[in-house]
Amino acid sequence: MKNFFLLALLLAGSLSVSAQTKFMTRTGTVNFVAEGPVKDDVKATNNQAACVLDGATGEVMFQIAIKSFVFKKALMQEHFNENYMESHKFPKAVLKGKVMDFAKIDLTKDGKYNVEIAGEMEMHGVKKQVREKGMLEVKGGKVILHSDFKVALADYSIAIPKIVEDKIAKEADVSLHMELAATAAK
């Protein structure tokens, strides 16, 4: 029994140490533009992305609700959800990975770093290894992650019908912006 308490105490202790080093947001921004040769405002914004960064290991996770993407045109939003992303079947996109060379980053003082995030992205039911460049900024105790990258729709089995082929780009330009605050997350 004594040992059990000791173990519990140790566990609680180690948890609280790592707990202090998590950074999190639930209001991250994701924009994308997938404009084809014929311009038609194929773009949307999502202000509800979640992101958790483990300040000890550099492990990072992004979660995005597909239905949180807001378009200007109702019909476009409907097609995006129903035909392309099938968000009723695949309601979220998840990226789980690691900030490479994380040991070089000092989270205790302000600074900017070019980083690479490598990991697995799951979207539209397809899992794919990804490696994207981005910027990590430490500013006033916050960690700001920013990345612009391209997503080839075909990589995630997102089929664009012939009739709208010249309106939708084969690669979407995605822009992520996460302002992560230190938290006592689990």
């Binding site: 999190m24 639930r26 979640a50 979660q63 995005i64 609700a65 239905k67 309601p91």
Partner: peptide, 9 residues
């Protein structure tokens, strides 16, 4: 309702 991430969204 857009599903659940960390929170229900």
């Amino acid at each position: 309702c857009n599903g659940k991430l960390l929170d229900v969204v």
